[in-house]
């Protein structure tokens, strides 16, 4: 079937099987391999991307279901002015080790900060509670999100504009 998904500001049209999972579409068809997967039961949250701005587990969304919607992945975090404050925060506060859960964690952090410019530690822990990290014990992830909250320019939270169209 035909799907049309806007990913990081670009419209992609593709022919896919109905059972094609969004995470596999992103990784295989678009080669956006920054989105990882870690389980089959939507428990680990490694595959989190933003669907219309909100975190979802892309292993439990069909590419077909995402058709007509916009998706933001880790590759879409960096803007023309450089890294997103969330990306900087993760580096500053050692919020990652093996890097596998990091893209999903950062996207959830981005969505949280878009709604709440000054989240408490409890709110951050709640926001990332659907995502597992085996390396950091979470504290430095919480600190990374706090770092981003404290350093982000309020104006700089717009997502990239929609422009080109590409077929895959």
């Amino acid at each position: 079937m035909q799907v049309s998904i806007n990913v990081n500001g670009t419209d992609y049209n593709a022919e896919v099987e109905p059972r094609h999972l969004l995470v596999r579409f992103l990784r295989e068809d678009l080669r956006l391999t920054g989105t990882h997967w870690g389980c089959d039961t939507s428990n680990c949250g490694t595959c989190v991307v933003l669907l219309d701005g909100e975190p979802v587990k892309s292993c439990t969304v069909l590419a077909a279901m995402a058709s007509g919607h916009s998706v933001r992945t880790v590759e879409g975090l960096e803007g023309p002015d450089g890294l997103d404050p969330v990306q900087q925060g993760f580096m500053e506060e050692h919020g990652l080790q093996c890097g596998f859960c990091t893209p999903g964690m950062m996207l959830t952090a981005r969505a949280l900060l878009d709604r709440n410019h000054d989240p408490s530690e409890e709110q951050i822990r709640e926001a990332i509670s659907g995502q597992l990290c085996r390396c950091t014990g979470y504290l430095n992830i919480v600190r990374a999100v706090r770092w981003a909250a404290e350093h982000q320019a309020r104006a700089q939270t717009e997502s990239p504009s929609q422009s080109e169209t590409a077929g895959v």
């Binding site: 920054g34 900087q88 050692h94 990652l96 890097g99």
Partner: peptide
């Protein structure tokens, strides 16, 4: 010292086995 490996990870540019094509 901030980690040298982080710039690629925070950009989603890590290269894991399942990324090999």
């Amino acid at each position: 010292l901030k980690r040298k490996e982080d710039p690629r990870f925070v950009r989603g540019k890590g290269n894991y086995v399942d990324d090999v094509l």
